[in-house]
Write a protein that binds this DNA or RNA. Structure first.
Lengths: 114, 114
DNA sequence: CGGCATATACCGACGGTCGGTACGTTGCCG
DNA sequence: CGGCAACGTACCGACCGTCGGTATATGCCG
């Protein structure tokens, strides 16, 4: 299935620069205009999953006063996946917009069932 | 959570004209260029759910040789929801595209964690 | 010292999709 | 004429990503 919005925003946040988990969380909140607030459970589960999928990789780890900061970075595969997702979003948006504007639009065959 | 792709395509298919379940299934396959094939389980569950949510309504029912055809139609709420979804897709696509093009792009504050 | 921000991590619950199956009719092909 | 695909609706268990909450630890501020 196509990636979902929280995952999409995580990739988008990391497309700017490597960030650690908590930084991703704040970046996503900011990028989405406050619309999306990543839960800790969603965040770290997604980070692990995307890393396992090869879309992310651990850039480096910093220790600041006993607090670990694990920085994640987008891999080439991750950047490609995000670019593909952008294309998909645009195509879907254009498709729906056309159909909203002009009922029984292109793809007429799809509209005459029998 | 934002609606997912299968649900999005069901709304898009119905934005053109009222269709019955099976017609929606074929329209979605066609609209997506064969990329998405709705499962029967997904289709009818989504149809019921969207109807319960007020985004769809039953337009009419036809009986063709003992085969029932239940036509669904987009409500005003459904059309509005789809239009909102289009805006969201476009905004997200633009956001990610900008960040892919120009690392450490706008929203700099989100990028300097500490 | 209590509470909040930082920071990572695990957990059960929930909901949408997947994959399969069921059941009935019609039409094509072997 | 027998089987198989297409049509058409409907239900089921399984899976997976997200949600919401909790745990743990440190530093800063009131």
């Amino acid at each position: 299935m196509a990636i979902q919005e929280p995952t999409f925003f995580i990739l988008t946040a990391l497309a700017g620069a490597p960030l650690h988990g908590y930084g991703v969380m704040r970046a996503v909140t900011e990028l989405s205009g406050g619309r999306i607030t990543l839960r800790a459970g969603t965040l770290y589960a997604a980070l692990d999953r995307l890393t396992a999928d090869g879309l992310l990789t651990v850039d480096r780890e910093e220790a600041v006063d006993g607090r670990l900061r694990r920085y994640y970075r987008l891999t080439d595969d991750g950047a490609a996946a995000l670019a593909a997702e952008v294309d998909r979003l645009r195509a879907n948006a254009a498709l729906a917009a056309a159909r909203l504007r002009r009922p029984i639009g292109p793809g007429g065959a799809a509209v005459s069932p029998a």
